[in-house]
Design a protein around this nucleic acid. Structure first.
Length: 451
DNA sequence: TCTGGGGTCCTAGGACCC
DNA sequence: TCTGGGGTCCTAGGACCC
């Protein structure tokens, strides 16, 4: 049996942990640069605010409504969701984190004759008879209570024989209060009932394209899809991924369980606050993206041998000339040194920058990722002394930035110079975030004071 | 004026190896 | 007229996820 624990309106719920006065009120959280709506409370959804809606349009359309608005605060969301995962780790026999707000759990159970036979004696579950899986249902309800009480995060829990069915169950847990935040699918009867109530376009693994094709073929619910023969699915789509989804809806465990321990590519990109025309300004941003990529590489103990940069103008501005480019550079030796990656990324940027355009966004992608030890070195061009020096420098920077806060020390090329005599700014300030909350769980200066 | 930022997997086709 | 039988690696494009 699988379970999925899904944080309800995750970012909004994080903000509400320290703003309980906002419970019951419409709340939205914005993307970087306060661009789009990325999270909405149920009240905001009920008003008709759509996901991905540009913030300025929301302000026009919902003028006069009392909507609480937050810039995204990933430091806070990362910390609170880590607490949720820690509780899951304590309560579940096996788990893997799927995204910032979702976590799968796994129970080594067999369903036979409608009863749950618990094989894992260490688990806190109790065997049940009669096919209603009462033990698991109670486990889920208790997990919800514990997370709500200890972290303040409301979660929805779905439990079923496959991950796709568990995701489906969690939607019912969210939608109907009668489930007490936990929905269990442990019989064929419940499975078929759930499938009939579930629109095909909301099935995990069915995106916009497949949904449109299926609907054109007369498939409107998960049930319609599951009822087709497997051979029909294979013949129609000739695609193993959608076939696995079909299997999972029919109760066959088919989607692989891998948790991506190490990223195979790492990307850091941002839209600029406004538009930039000068190479020097863009270079500072790219240096920061590159430095972040290097940090991420070191954190997962890997090196990269390809550094790529992309740069583009503002696609929404049809009145301006458009430019888009992507270029990469391959290195003989993989690296995770901030100095190396910033240097290469800057060189690539120089090659692709064309004056005269209004640039809106850039990004750095590192690829060709491999372990940092043992590492393949260059036979002819290897300076061991330099390599060790950079390694020690990076380690020192990481340590200082961890203890004293991000960007306490950065390379000179990462500093934004405002003008003569003015203090240079750091990366975090280059992004617009007019409605950002504080970080009471990670910064002493923001700690909550009780009266 | 203002429009996010990350990732993964699969497949087909081409280049190359013996 | 007839033109082998295995492989690997890489890339681009298309789909999906949060």
């Amino acid at each position: 049996m699988y379970g999925i624990i899904d944080c309800d309106n995750c970012y909004v719920s994080c903000e509400r942990v320290f703003r309980p006065d906002l419970n019951g009120k419409p709340v939205v959280v914005l993307s970087n640069n306060d661009g789009c709506v990325v999270a909405r409370s149920n009240e905001a959804k009920a008003l008709g605010i759509k996901a991905g809606m540009p913030y300025f349009k929301m302000m026009q359309e919902f003028k006069g409504h009392d909507i609480a608005v937050f810039s995204s605060n990933y430091e806070l969301y990362g910390e609170l969701t880590a607490r949720v995962v820690e509780i899951i780790r304590q309560e579940a026999p096996a788990y893997f984190r799927y995204s910032i707000d979702e976590c799968f759990v796994y129970f080594p159970l067999n369903i036979e004759h409608g009863a749950l036979n618990i094989k894992d004696s260490d688990s806190q579950l109790h065997s049940t008879k009669g096919g209603d899986g009462g033990g698991l249902k109670i486990w889920g309800e208790n997990l919800h209570k514990r997370i709500k009480k200890s972290v303040g995060m409301p979660v929805s829990i779905g439990l079923a024989p496959t991950k796709t069915l568990a995701k489906l169950a969690s939607h019912f847990a969210k939608k109907y209060p009668g489930y007490h935040h936990c929905c269990l699918i442990d019989t064929d009867e419940k499975r078929l009932k759930a499938l009939k109530l579930y629109p095909i376009e909301e099935v995990w693994g069915i995106g916009r394209r497949y949904a449109a094709r299926l609907q054109a073929l007369g498939v409107t619910t998960a049930y319609d899809f599951a009822q087709h023969h497997g051979s029909w699915v294979r013949a129609t789509f000739n695609n193993i991924v959608i076939y696995r989804t079909w299997q999972e809806l029919n109760g066959i465990d088919a989607v692989p369980n891998e948790e991506m321990a190490k990223k195979k590519s790492i990307c850091t990109s941002r839209s600029f606050n406004g538009m930039l025309t000068e190479l020097d300004d863009i270079r500072t941003h790219v240096a920061n993206y590159a430095a972040r990529c290097a940090e991420k590489l070191r954190k997962q103990e890997t090196v990269a041998s390809i550094v790529a940069v992309f740069l583009n103008t503002n696609f929404f501005r049809e009145d301006l000339p458009q430019y888009w480019n992507f270029q990469e550079k391959r290195l003989t030796v993989g690296t995770n040194s901030t100095i190396d990656i910033v240097k290469v990324a800057t060189e690539v940027l120089h090659e692709m920058y064309v004056p005269g355009y209004h640039y809106k966004k850039a990004g750095v992608i590192v690829m060709g990722i491999g372990p940092n030890s043992p590492q393949q070195l260059d036979l002819f061009d290897y300076d061991a002394k330099d390599y060790d020096k950079k390694k020690r420098l990076d380690a020192a920077m990481d340590r200082i930035n961890k203890v004293n806060g991000t960007e306490t020390v950065v390379l000179g090329s990462q500093q934004y110079t405002k003008g003569r005599g003015e203090k240079a700014e750091v990366f975090a300030n280059a992004i617009k975030h007019d409605h950002k909350s504080k970080n009471p769980t990670t910064r002493w200066s923001d700690i909550i004071k009780l009266k």
